[in-house]
Write a protein that binds this DNA or RNA. Structure first.
Ligand code: MN
Ligand code: MN
Ligand code: ZN
Ligand code: ZN
Lengths: 135, 135
DNA sequence: TTGAAGATGAGAATGATTCCCATGAAGATT
DNA sequence: AATCTTCATGGGAATCATTCTCATCTTCAA
């Protein structure tokens, strides 16, 4: 039998480095297009498709977090390691990482109770931060 | 000053009735396109745009629940009233409604703690149900 | 240095959702 | 019931984020 293809470790390229840096510099979440725009504005010539591909890759390995915004777009951000969720300001994008240990426990309990396996969950909070509240 | 436009109560039309019924009959969540397909298959001549518009309206009034699937599409379902979340089977679509009182409390606490206002959250669980597990 | 496996970029293609607008119905008013 | 105003409908075009294609570079192991 042939062995199952294992994803080779990604190659180190200038583009990948630039993209990684762009995501690290930014505050809050940004979409592939927004990141690409900023890179372009800063003189980079990286292609949009490459930004999409690379961000997906980084998200797959957990190097960056990906969420789906309420309007359906995917947004990325460099986050602290480990499982956590986000409290995001709808108007300015300010993001606070939050972890809810008791929730994680209940999720496992509920899943087991219902006989569900391999349960994943995505939880994001959207609100208005103090700053934006007075405006 | 002019009064702010208030959304007039929607008119009762054959299409709206058909769509409402289609959503009620279905099990689990379905996208506008899936619902439209099924209606078409059952002899209805309702237009796709109308299905999209109507489902959005029903979701806005809370008459149906709308969620965004992991792959980005919007799916609808008739649910029991009140705030709750869903445990959804990735392969067969079977859906279980769950409510997590302690989570709701912590959300309010976290929001207040961080000074965020008008915080909303969406939480859905995706897993494999017992049935689909043995297959 | 070479070559094979990958990565890139430009533009085309996709696909869900929204828009547009001419036409058809709902419902309030005579 | 006839009329009128307003909203709803539908079908096809338009959007727009994301993915795909593929010819052309790069990386990196040998
Ligand atoms: Mn985070
Ligand atoms: Mn429900
Ligand atoms: Zn803010
Ligand atoms: Zn199942």
């Amino acid at each position: 039998m042939t062995s199952i293809e294992r994803p080779a470790s990604p190659r180190h390229t200038r583009q990948r480095a630039e993209i990684r840096q762009a995501v690290e510099e930014q505050e809050g979440f940004a979409t592939a297009q927004e990141i690409h725009d900023r890179m372009r504005h800063d003189g980079s010539g990286v292609g949009l498709a490459t930004v999409y591909r690379t961000l997906q890759g980084l998200a797959a390995t957990g190097e960056v977090d990906a969420i789906r915004t309420p309007d359906g777009q995917v947004a990325y951000r460099t986050c602290s390691p480990g499982h956590h969720h986000h409290l995001i300001c709808r108007s300015c994008g300010r993001t606070v990482e939050v972890s809810i240990p008791s929730l994680e426990a209940q999720v496992r309990a509920l899943a087991a109770e219902q006989g569900f396996a391999e349960v994943e969950h995505a939880l994001e909070f959207y609100g208005t931060c103090t700053e934006c509240a007075r405006a």
